[in-house]
Write a protein that binds this DNA or RNA. Structure first.
Length: 607
RNA sequence: GCCGACGUGGCUCAGUGGUAGAGCAGUUGAUUCGUAAUCAACAGGUCAGGGGUUCAAAUCCCCUCGUCGGCUCCA
């Protein structure tokens, strides 16, 4: 139904279309189709402007993307911000003149003639299977394109060019680097404004900014890129997360283990990491003539632990979890705040089980994963099931069983997921769960991977009922992924205003004058004895000033004490949201706080 | 890694060839105040690091380091 409205819009009935759009809450195919056509057309207009202003540029591809569009050009000189302004101006003219988009179907040979000076287009034409191809023409500008497009350039009402970036032709770093111009366009000016505001809002939620403002963590160039210092407040949040994590793991039948940070290179040869994971590992260090490597993964240690004595089938499944700190080489250009780093602590675990236990175990893990994510307020995530790739190890029958187990678990819990065919790791199929940052870029956190490879390589066994050795199956899993990345996502998710149970400082007690200092100290002691994290602000400042600071520190509760409160043995409570709850009895306040902490775990932020 | 932009006190930023600036934060003093900023004084910078051009460099050039945006979503 929505699809049928697109041509209406193209014919000029913008009203009908955009009204319809604004009523819808969730994105669906309809909306993206309409916007996609608009944005794709805008990218053609941009390409036209670029060709007119900089005729030496070669055009390549210019699709619509999630929040806008881009077009890649091959040009020797880089585009500057001034160039972008010029291009925008030219685009506005093209839009004002309202040139029709014409679709022309033609033969590949004719197309080669049209694009004889555009080598990238020729390359694309040569790869098209059909004998006929379509080109779109607006004015003198022609582009090889499947379409569809708007009826004319004048239909573009609101657009903006956003940035220039490098990108390899066809995304392959062996190819030439092109220049990509990103932009976006909307049906109305208001929608564009809204989008630009959203970008500003995202900047305010950026965990790198909040991490600095709230004094949570830092990355220092003298220490090294991608290596994180956790400051006291960030560390306190981490401590709360870790404690929750440990408790839940013990409740869920895991045992917690610890392993070293380095191991002999020979161990990594046995595990195979020296071949298939080499690019991500740091160089060996020499210890008395023997090379050691800092660990990129925890699995070989857990396997060696498993092998330290004979195991019986009665002991399985064995579930060993570790907050294991690993180091991986990441190319400097991909590092990003806490979200992609070089040293991080995984909330890792390895489950050793029999084939007949696989279904149950995977179900348990998946259930646990979702429980953990929800506990931290994440209710929206993208789930991917990756299936058998080329060059797999293990038997097809095991792959089928494992893939079936993963799929069965997803379906049992009614979780929506996408299948990523052939994207499994060579050693087994997996489920990945991704959550979004403030700019809606997705980051992989949870992962559940079945592994047929390591048990084989290390030759691990258990003694079965039949009194003979069998090979267990191994499941690698991380629920939060890494504490660094998870913390980054968490900061952005809550915009730094952590729910009460996670807030490093839960309560700030502020005095009106120094006559109340003793009373304030008494209260903070009382809170601390009740397990509540409080701080006093006894500075000789006006209460408005103290409130402003506490507000900027995003502290959930402010307790104001003046002569009136001392007199009545109460406190005046102000919530982070600005709500004044008036004078409250202290015992009652503590009771409420404890209640809120319990409810908040897995719940929604209250203020 | 590659392409581009950027790097000035703790933070946010001004300064484009001629003696390094502001606001906030900090320190000190005054003020004892009721729900988002009280006033004043003081202190703080080899302008990321190194090299070069110049009588003179934060400013121009080169190198290094770091940060940011991108490098998957096929005409």
């Amino acid at each position: 139904m929505i699809k049928s409205m697109v041509p209406l819009f193209i014919d000029g009935m913008q009203e009908t279309y955009s009204k319809h759009m604004s009523q819808r809450q969730e994105k669906n195919e309809g909306e993206s189709n309409g916007l996609e056509i608009l944005r794709h057309s805008t990218s053609h207009i941009m390409a036209q402007a670029v060709k007119e202003l900089y005729p030496d540029s070669k055009i390549t591809i210019g699709p619509a993307i999630k929040d806008g569009f881009y077009y890649d050009f091959d040009r020797d000189k880089p585009f500057t911000t001034e160039d972008l302004e010029k291009i925008e101006k030219r685009m506005e003219e093209i839009i004002r003149v309202d040139i029709p988009f014409e679709r022309i179907e033609t033969s590949k040979n004719k197309a080669r003639e049209i694009f004889k000076n555009e080598m990238y287009k020729i390359e694309l034409i040569n790869e098209i299977q059909d004998e006929k191809v379509s080109v779109y023409k607006q004015g003198d500008f022609v582009d090889l394109c499947r379409g569809p497009h708007l009826s004319s350039t004048g239909k573009v009402k609101a657009f903006k060019l956003l940035s220039v970036a490098g990108s390899y032709w066809r995304g392959d770093e062996k190819n030439k680097m092109l220049q990509r111009i990103y932009g976006t366009s909307f049906f109305t000016r208001e929608d564009l404004e809204k989008y630009l505001n959203k970008l500003d809002e995202a900047k305010r939620r950026d965990h790198r900014k909040l991490g600095k403002d709230l004094d949570l963590f830092s990355v220092d160039e003298d220490i090294g890129s991608g290596l994180v210092n956790w400051h006291p407040k960030g560390a306190l949040v981490r401590y709360i997360i870790e404690n929750f994590w440990r408790e839940e793991h013990y409740k869920n039948g895991y045992q917690i283990v610890y392993s070293p940070h380095i191991a002999k290179v020979s161990l990594w040869h046995t595990s195979g990491h020296m071949s298939f994971y080499k690019d991500n590992m740091y160089s060996p260090m020499d210890i008395e003539g023997v090379p050691y490597i800092v660990k990129p993964m925890n699995c070989p240690f857990h396997i060696k632990m498993y092998k330290s004595r004979l195991k019986s089938y009665r002991e399985l499944p064995i579930r060993w979890a570790e907050l294991g700190t690993v180091y991986r080489y990441e190319r400097s250009g991909v590092l990003h705040g806490l979200l992609r780093v070089r040293g991080f602590t995984q909330d890792d675990a390895h489950i050793f089980c029999r084939l007949d236990q696989l279904n149950d175990e995977i179900e348990r893990v998946l259930h646990f994963t979702i429980y953990m994510l929800r506990s931290f307020g994440f209710n929206e995530f993208d789930i991917y099931l990756s299936t058998m790739p080329e060059g797999y190890v293990g038997t097809i029958s095991n792959w089928e069983k494992a893939t079936g187990a993963l799929k069965g678990a997803l379906e049992k819990f009614g979780l929506k997921y996408d299948i990523d065919p052939g994207a499994g790791v060579f050693y087994g199929p997996k489920i990945d769960v991704k959550i979004k940052d403030s700019l809606e870029r997705t980051w992989q956190c949870s992962t559940i991977q079945v592994d047929f490879n390591l048990p084989e390589r290390f030759n691990i066994t258990y003694i079965g009922e039949d009194n003979s050795p069998h090979q267990p199956i191994m499941i690698h899993r991380a629920l939060l992924g890494s504490l660094e990345r998870f913390f980054g996502c968490l900061i952005e998710h809550y915009a730094g205003a952590f729910p009460l149970w996670l807030a490093p400082v839960q309560v700030k007690i502020m005095t009106i004058t120094d006559r109340q200092n003793d009373y304030a100290r008494k209260i903070v002691k009382y809170l601390s004895d009740s397990g509540i994290r409080g701080e006093t602000d006894l500075r000789n400042e006006k209460v408005g000033f103290k409130i402003r600071e506490a507000q900027m520190e995003k502290i959930p509760y402010m307790l104001i004490v003046g002569d009136r409160e001392v007199e009545s043995e109460t406190i005046s409570v102000r919530k982070r949201g600005g709500e004044d709850m008036g004078k409250v009895n202290i015992e009652k306040f503590i009771e409420n706080i404890k209640e809120e902490c319990t409810v908040n775990k897995g719940g929604v932020l209250n203020s």
